[in-house]
Amino acid sequence: MREPGVALAGALARDEGGLTIVTCPDLDLRDWLVKEVESLVPTGAAPFRTTSVAEALREPNRMALLIPSDEAEVVRDLDACRDQALDPPRTQPIVLFLLRHGDGHRTLATEAPSAWSWASGNDVDPEELAELDVDAERAAFTDEAGAPPEDWLVPWRAGQLPRSQENYTRAFWAMTLEQP
C-alpha cells in the first residue's frame, strides 16, 4: 500500500525538472493540495504558484505549482512545449494540479501523449491513496493484538491494560478501526 505523502514526495523528486501531476477530487481540495505540496517540498525548491505554462518554463530553478484556469489548454501547451524544459535544463519540476475527472485528464488521454508520457507514474491522487483498506487493517490488528479492535478496547477503556506507549499506540489504531 502506497502512503500518500511518500507517493507525492516521490513524484516531486523522481525527475529533476520533470512533470508531476497532482489529481484533486474538487476545486476546494485543490487549494488544500497546493498547500500540502508547499508544506512537503524542501525550502530550497522555492515553490511559486502560476496559471501559465510559459511562466512556469521561465523559472527553471524554482518549483512551479501550475494551477490552471483552463486545464485543457494548459495540458495542450505542456504537450507542445515540454521539451523547452530541457534547454536550459530545469532543476525543479513543474507540478500540475488537475481535477480527477476534469478536462485536463481527458486532454491527456485524448490529445497529449508527450505530456502524459513525461508524467507517467508521476501523477498522484493523494486523496485516493489516503483511503484505508479497513478490512486489511482490521485483520492486521487482530493478528497483532490477538483480538478485534472493539474487543481489545473493552479492557483498555476499563483501565485494565498497562498505560504503556505500545498500548497507547494500539488504542489509537483500534479507535480508528472501531465499528459502531
Binding site: 511518500v6 516521490g10 485528464h105 507514474g121
Partner: peptide, 28 residues
C-alpha cells in the same frame, strides 16, 4: 529513499512504482 533512506529499492518499492504506472495508464 523516502521510506527507509535506502539506496537501492526492494520488491515492495518496485511494486508501488508499478502501481503508480498502472494508475497513469488507467486514467488514460
Amino acid at each position: 529513499q523516502i521510506r527507509r533512506g535506502d539506496e537501492w529499492p526492494d520488491e515492495r518499492d518496485l511494486a508501488d512504482a508499478v502501481a503508480d504506472q498502472k494508475d497513469s495508464f488507467r486514467r488514460m
